[in-house]
Amino acid sequence: MACNPEFLKCYEERKQESFFKVVNSVAISSENMRAIPHDFARKFSDNELLGKMKIRVHWGSSWEVKISKNPRFYFMEKSGWEKFVTDNALGRNEFLTFTHKGKMHFSVNIMKQIGKEMLQPPQTRAFFASSSRFKTEQGVKTEEEVVSSDLNSRGPRTAPESNGEGMCRRKLNFEKKKAEESQNSKRTERVVGIQRDFAGTSSSSVAGFSIVITKSYLTSLALPVSVVNFMPRVKSVVKIHHPNGKKLWKVVFLVTRRGRLFSGGWRSLCMDYPVALGDTCKFTLINPHELLLVVTKP
């Protein structure tokens, strides 16, 4: 009987030593996050561990990370770990498995929060930033060319304009206007774009949830159980955006035995937004530390 090659591959990998990590943004660079589990480390000698480990992902990229030791455990040094985390845009509760392939070489499988494995490199924030900067510069250059063409078609100029003062003044005005428009656009585009992407989601979906405001909810707001796994696991400060992109509130997110809730800063948000008794607050999750809030009146 022919054997399934995928089964054989899984069977062989089960024989290899491995450990896992859940990467979240709250403690992404802490020693505990970078720690190598004791049950894994004890199967190797100090000479093997106090060196460098090489980690390789599915699409072929690899990173060398130095290993150090404190009185309690071995851990990956911060510089190498942060390079790996940044390059793969981690920090949203991804599930990582590190499988030892020999000689401190590890293959890493990255499972996203939605349960899907990452099979190709992410487009990092640096890529998007450089792309946006290129488009902005390109737009400014076009404006300059239009101004220059317009001035050339006007015929005789006054003495200051012929010396270039007029063109410089117009160029500066265009650049200033372009910069202001770019800042306003970037501030609102991200929030409004996310609102559009998640439009129509139900109140029980991962992307968002809705709460009708009662009297007690004007002081602190208890969150539904359905979104607990997608919020921070410890006390944190979260950002709540107004849909117009111009307002932002920082609110304390508390983790208690009775549940999760918005506390410090929530009352000020209700007064400023404003949120009143009977209103429906619809939250859309941007990431574990940022939400979009849309309020509808009864």
Score class of each variant (00 low, 15 high):
residue 10 C to E: 15
residue 35 A to V: 02
residue 230 F to S: 13
residue 197 D to L: 14
residue 233 R to I: 02
residue 257 R to M: 07
residue 34 R to Q: 02
residue 163 N to M: 14
residue 194 I to R: 14
residue 251 V to G: 05
residue 176 K to T: 12
residue 51 G to H: 07
residue 154 R to I: 10
residue 70 N to P: 03
residue 214 T to V: 00
residue 191 V to H: 07
residue 100 H to R: 05
residue 164 G to A: 06
residue 66 K to M: 14
residue 296 T to C: 05
residue 242 H to Y: 08
residue 69 K to A: 04
residue 1 M to N: 03
residue 133 R to S: 12
residue 156 P to N: 02
residue 131 S to C: 06
residue 44 F to V: 09
residue 270 C to E: 04
residue 275 V to R: 03
residue 83 K to A: 12
residue 41 A to S: 15
residue 153 S to H: 11
residue 79 S to T: 13
residue 34 R to V: 03
residue 161 E to S: 14
residue 81 W to Y: 10
residue 138 Q to L: 10
residue 27 A to P: 00
residue 173 N to W: 00
residue 19 F to A: 03
residue 239 K to M: 06
residue 119 L to V: 11
residue 158 T to V: 07
residue 38 H to L: 15
residue 209 F to K: 00
residue 298 P to T: 08
residue 242 H to R: 10
residue 21 K to T: 05
residue 149 S to L: 11
residue 96 L to Y: 00
residue 243 P to S: 09
residue 208 G to Q: 06
residue 125 R to Q: 13
residue 193 G to W: 07
residue 209 F to T: 08
residue 298 P to E: 11
residue 234 V to L: 04
residue 136 T to K: 10
residue 114 I to W: 05
residue 101 K to F: 04
residue 60 G to V: 08
residue 250 K to L: 07
residue 65 V to W: 01
residue 41 A to H: 01
residue 214 T to R: 13
residue 109 N to G: 12
residue 278 G to M: 08
residue 167 M to A: 14
residue 276 A to D: 11
residue 240 I to T: 00
residue 92 R to E: 09
residue 207 A to Y: 02
residue 83 K to C: 10
